[in-house]
């Protein structure tokens, strides 16, 4: 029952050239132009192409996941949410489909950036590739839910700037576009963002294959909090429709 709906959620992203440009083309262009020029430098203790590969993969995947949840704002504006409510599709199944679709839409961003990384000399063993992928997928959970919350709260017109703003804010502060805080209070604060752990999945995979405990706690806390907000917003919307 839900598979056709999941397929629709994926199709709507891949048929929209603007969303493809932002989730796939933009990170790729940024990666080649910036990592290409800094091919032999290091940052945050690891090679720049590896660091920036993970950062850009996280950036594209964050865009993909937050926009997928954000589709709800468009669905509401078109009366599609209302129509879904008079079909047997359950609200929970629809949310589930959006979450699954968000992951499936994010995967190409990861794969594409990994391939780009290899062309710029990123060398990892198979286990490390899987570890990075695993950590990125876990770290994306709060962003999927953030998209759902935005979709319920923001109007259709404000959706694009809201998604763009949120993603750039989290990506910049978390270090996906480069590490700006070597130490101090700012670094400690940015470690409270889920995007910090996304951006540092590469470093974690190189060091121990895992985030330190703080990473798991931060990602889990954001996931739980946003899941709560998303279900609250969903219930409020259902009561209103």
């Amino acid at each position: 029952m839900v598979t056709t709906h999941v397929r629709y959620e994926i199709v709507r992203t891949f048929r929209n050239p603007r969303s493809l440009a932002v989730t796939l083309a933009l990170p790729l262009v940024l990666y080649y132009s910036i990592a290409g020029a800094n091919r032999h430098t290091t940052t945050s203790g690891i090679s720049f192409p590896l660091y920036f590969m993970v950062g850009m993969a996280a950036y594209g995947a964050m865009f993909a996941t937050v926009s997928t949840g954000g589709h709800i704002a468009i669905d509401r504006a078109y009366g599609w949410t209302r129509h879904l409510r008079i079909t047997p599709l359950r609200a929970r199944a629809e949310m589930g489909a959006k979450v699954l679709a968000a992951y499936l839409v994010a995967l190409p961003a990861l794969v594409l950036l990994f391939l780009a990384g290899v062309t710029l000399g990123v060398h990892l063993d198979l286990r490390q590739w899987f570890e990075i992928t695993g950590l990125l997928l876990v770290g994306l959970a709060p962003f999927i839910l953030m998209g759902l919350v935005l979709g319920h709260v923001v109007s259709c017109d404000a959706l694009a700037p809201a998604v763009g703003g949120v993603v750039v804010l989290f990506a910049l502060l978390g270090g996906a576009l480069g590490s700006f805080f070597g130490s101090g209070v700012m670094l400690a604060l940015t470690k409270l963002l889920p995007s910090f752990w996304l951006a540092h999945a590469g470093k974690a995979a190189l060091a121990s294959g895992d985030w330190p405990l703080q990473g798991w706690i931060v990602v889990a806390a954001w996931t739980v909090a946003l899941a709560f907000l998303a279900s609250l917003a969903n219930r409020r919307d259902s009561a209103r429709a």
Binding site: Y8, N16, Y78, I86
Partner: peptide, 26 residues
């Protein structure tokens, strides 16, 4: 089942895909 005054899926779908999508719910 119902027909509301609005309510197409907002994004690019062909007519057959749209009707197939709705059929999948029932």
């Amino acid at each position: 089942s119902g027909m509301l005054q609005a309510g197409f899926p907002p994004d690019l779908l062909k007519v057959r895909e749209y009707v197939t999508l709705v059929a999948s719910y029932y």
